[in-house]
């Protein structure tokens, strides 16, 4: 498959990238690792007139620590270099695991954290070649008025399959966005939207420059689990990111976020409340998992049946809580 024609702008500074974005009249896309964008362009889902390369912007390609101890991940840092980052491994192993869960080694060597956080939503009726899509009416995500996934639906249900997104939400991460006026910050939980078309808070002329992970207290434990039918190269059938502070057996600041089953990561607040209440006892964890099942609301049959997604969510909640119970902040976890 070949790429469509486009103009290329190499940005050396954030300012240059923003200027090119503005000049582009909405017909411009940011190219980070390209493992999502270029595939979509080959499918002719995206046909930008101009593509802006941002991996040449130094400030986007580093990991630093803020004065408050927060971790600042440049949007252009590749997933494989983050996977080796000792700060991440130590302070939020769950994020480390989410990062190594993405695609294959090859994909992680190319793909960036910014690209993964901004990953386009996916759908069986949309992520297809031009020829394939030509066989059907143009759907909402492509600018039409119908949805093939749910007949008669008023919105697009394309799925956010990013592996880091649920973890970023669970970590209360802040997305730092650059635009003409300067910088704005959006909490990850608000960055993601429950809409397959406008799936995140970025405006066409904005870009993500970094992701800030708050330091968290010393009792913070984090975990991530991905379920896919095939290890090594697969989008999740469902994934989960969770964070919790455990002190003297009591849980606080519980965040449980399910990804890859809806258009945005689903924050399970009731489930979290059950954990804050019942702690990490066997009974408490079971109860939390049951709560998760009902808390999910309606789900689509996209990629797998709603019933199966619900089942996976329940299992994931149970397993992630078990893992949180067994882990402590300094315990490093290897693999996925």
């Amino acid at each position: 498959m070949r790429l469509p024609r486009f103009e290329y702008v190499k940005a050396s500074t954030t300012g240059e990238a923003l200027a090119a974005l503005q000049a582009g009249d909405g017909q411009t896309r940011i190219l980070a690792g390209g493992t999502d964008l270029l595939v979509n362009m080959k499918y002719r889902i995206e046909r930008p007139a101009t593509v802006i390369g941002i991996r040449t912007i130094d400030e986007l390609c580093s990991v630093t620590t803020g004065s408050d101890g927060s971790l600042h991940l440049g949007a252009g840092v590749t997933l494989s270099s983050l996977a080796e980052n000792s700060l991440i491994k130590e302070s939020c192993p769950g994020l480390g695991r989410a990062i190594t869960a993405v695609g294959s080694k090859h994909i992680r060597n190319m793909g960036t954290i910014g690209g993964n956080a901004c990953l386009n939503t996916r759908c069986w009726y949309y992520n297809q070649s031009q020829l394939w899509r030509d066989a059907r009416e143009v759907c909402r995500k492509a600018g039409g008025n119908v949805c093939h996934a749910i007949n008669g639906s008023e919105r697009c249900h394309a799925i956010n399959s990013s592996d880091t997104a649920p973890m970023l939400v669970a970590l209360d991460a802040e997305m730092v966005i650059q635009n003409r006026e300067g910088e704005r910050r959006v909490l990850a939980r608000e960055f993601y939207r429950n809409d397959g078309v406008r799936y995140n808070a970025l405006e066409p002329e904005e870009m993500l420059s970094r992701i800030e992970i708050p330091r968290g207290n010393t009792e913070r434990r984090t975990a991530f689990i991905k379920i896919c039918s095939r290890r090594g190269l697969d989008f999740a059938m469902a994934n989960i990111g969770a964070a919790v502070s455990v002190k003297a057996g009591r849980c606080s600041q519980v965040r449980i976020v399910i990804g890859a089953i809806a258009s945005h990561p689903l924050i399970l607040e009731k489930t979290a409340a059950v954990v804050e209440e019942g702690g990490l006892s066997e009974g408490g964890m079971e109860q939390a998992a049951d709560t998760a099942r009902t808390e999910l609301g309606t789900l689509t049959n996209l990629f797998s049946s709603a019933g199966y997604k619900r089942q996976l969510a329940q299992v994931l909640v149970k397993r992630v809580l078990q893992e949180l119970k067994g882990s402590s902040r300094n315990k490093r976890r290897a693999g996925k």
């Binding site: 069986w124 297809q128 066989a135 039918s229 095939r230 290890r231 090594g232 190269l233 697969d234």
Partner: peptide, 18 residues
């Protein structure tokens, strides 16, 4: 009449871990 999963990503051949 169409394959919904026409790519090696969605058509799941096993990989080394399997």
């Amino acid at each position: 009449g169409r394959v919904l999963n026409p790519s090696l990503l969605d058509y799941k051949l096993p990989r080394p871990f399997e």
